[in-house]
Amino acid sequence: MPSPRYHREIPARFRLEAGKCAGCGRVSYPARKVCPACRGQEMEQVKLSPRGTVVTSTVIHVPPDDFLNEAPYAMAVVETAEGARFMTQVVDCDPSTVLPGMEVDLEFRLIRKEGKSGILCYGHKGVPGSV
């Protein structure tokens, strides 16, 4: 991934920055220019709370090449208290225990390495919830 492309995603991936629609309050993660709920264009920047609930999940047994060393690993759609939903891995546990309803904390982690000498790419992964 060329670094300018990676750079653009840093606010969302590193700091969980999202957009909240000033009109209807819908939180979009990452932030968008147009609210998908009401088409409003006035957005305020908010930060997602670093925890959420698993909406649905899977365990990847046949991974893409960049994730060969990690399989099998759990992936989930996670919803935060703000109502934002996104895809992430859930780690530091038996992947088969990652099921809908599970509470997870979101931690800053290495996500992938780009090729042999590319940049290290970070973001958030879920881990079993502390509360």
């Binding site: 990452p30 991974p63 960049d66 690993y73 992936m75 895809m87 891995q89 996500i111 992938r112 973001g123």
Partner: peptide
């Protein structure tokens, strides 16, 4: 950016 990046197939 939101799915493939994190390793989903």
């Amino acid at each position: 950016e939101q799915e493939v990046y994190y390793g989903v197939t």
